[in-house]
Amino acid sequence: MTSSSPDLDSLRLFLKVAELGSISQTALAVGLSQPSVSRSLRALEENLQTSLFHRTGRGVQLTEVGEQALARARALVDGADQFADDIRDQARAPTGVVTVALLTAYMRDVAPDLFEEVRRRFPGVVLRLLESFSVQHEDWLASGRVDIALVTRYRKPSRDGQEVLAVSDMVVVGNPAIGSGEELMPFRELASVPLVLPAAPNGLRVRMEDVARRVGIRLNVVLEADSIEAQRALISRERCYLLWSQHSVRQAGIDHLFASRRIVEPRLPRYVVMQTTTHHPLSRASREVARILRRLVLAAHGQVVV
C-alpha cells in the first residue's frame, strides 16, 4: 500500500519545530496543545518512514535526514504560498507600486509612453520612476529598491535574468570631423583623440580601459563627465569627442550635427538589458509593467513587437 504524501500543514509544523527547537514552544506559537504537535510530528515521520528529530531533555534537534528534509519542505511550502498568491493576483486587476529605474535617454523617450499605457490599462498600478547609471541600477536591484531596471553592458550578458533588448555599436562622435573622413575607426587611433568619458566604475570606461591595455595604447581622456547633457554641451563648444552608441547618437538627434566614426578592431557593442530584482518575487503588477517596458524599448530600437 502506497503512503500518502505529507500535507502542507504537517510540513509547516515541521518547519516551526525545526526553527524553535522545542515542541512545547511550537505548541504555544501555533496555538495547539503539546500532545497535538507531538502526534503530528510522529505521523509525519511514520509517513516518511524516518526520524526527523532527535528528542533530548532540552528539546529536539534535526537528524541528518531531517536537515535534508528541511530545505525541501521549505521550498514546497514557499512554492505553495507563491502559487496561491499568483492565482489570487490573476483573479483581480493588478495593483500596487512598481518601481522602475531607467537610463537617462529612455527616461526622456520611453517614460511618457510607459506612464500613459500603464495608467490606461492598469489604473490600480502606480509607477515610481528613478534615473541613474547602470552601476546604481544594479545596486538598487540587489537591495530590492527597484523592481525593474534598464542597464547597459559592454560585454554580452551571460547570466539568467538579463534580457538583451537591443545591441548598438559604439562610435566616436564630435565636431569637427575625426581623422580621414572614413566611416570606421580602428580602436588604436583613439590614442590621438581628445576624449570625454565617464569616470570609473562606469561600464563603458572600464571596458575602454581594458581594450586600451590589450591593444597597447593609452586613452587621451581630457575630461571625465558622467552627465550626458554635459558631454553633449562640451562637444558643441570644444574640440573633443564622445564615445556613444550609434542608437544614442540618433536618439539624441545629433547625427546630422556632428561627425562620427564607428569603432572597430575590436568592435565595441553596447547591450541594453532589462533586469528584474531577485530580492523579492515580482508582483503581477511588476510583470505587466515589464512587458510594456520591453515592448516600448524594442520599438524605440526599430523592432516591431507583435
Rank of each mutant, 00 (worst) to 15 (best):
A69D: 09
M274P: 04
A29E: 14
V289P: 03
H301V: 01
A18W: 10
L48C: 09
D210Y: 10
E288M: 03
T56F: 10
V65K: 05
I87N: 03
L257C: 05
H54L: 15
S143V: 11
L242W: 02
E183P: 00
V135G: 08
A300F: 01
L282M: 02
G216C: 14
R213M: 11
A27M: 04
Y241I: 07
Q251C: 02
Q68T: 10
V135K: 00
S36V: 12
V98R: 01
I263W: 04
L190G: 12
S132Y: 03
P201L: 07
A29G: 03
T50P: 02
Q49A: 14
P266Q: 03
A84H: 12
I254T: 13
T63Q: 04
N202G: 13
E238A: 05
L62Q: 02
Q246E: 15
D113Q: 06
R267A: 11
F122Q: 08
V221P: 11
N175Y: 11
T152H: 07
L243Q: 07
N47R: 12
H301T: 01
Q90S: 10
F53C: 03
L219Q: 06
N202V: 07
A225H: 02
V273R: 00
V17T: 11
E224Y: 11
E163D: 06
Y154E: 14
F187N: 07
Q275W: 00
T26E: 08
T104M: 04
A252L: 14
S33Y: 01
M274S: 03
A212R: 01
Y241G: 03
S40Q: 12
P281V: 05
D109K: 03
Q136Y: 07
P198M: 10
G124W: 09
Y106H: 15
C240L: 07
P194N: 05
V65S: 06
R214F: 15
S40V: 13
V215F: 06
D7H: 04
E265Q: 09
N47H: 01
V305R: 01
D7G: 06
Y241A: 02
E209Y: 02
N220Y: 08
G203I: 14
V30I: 15
Q231P: 00
V215R: 00
R92F: 11
Y154H: 14
L13H: 02
R218D: 15
A191H: 14
A200M: 13
I148H: 00
I217H: 11
Q68L: 13
G203F: 14
E189L: 13
L223S: 09
G124P: 06
G96H: 09
H280A: 12
E238F: 04
G179C: 12
P157F: 00
G161L: 04
L103V: 01
L268T: 07
G79R: 02
G216Q: 12
L293C: 05
V17K: 05
N47W: 01
L293K: 02
L102C: 01
P123I: 13
R119K: 11
R188T: 15
R295L: 02
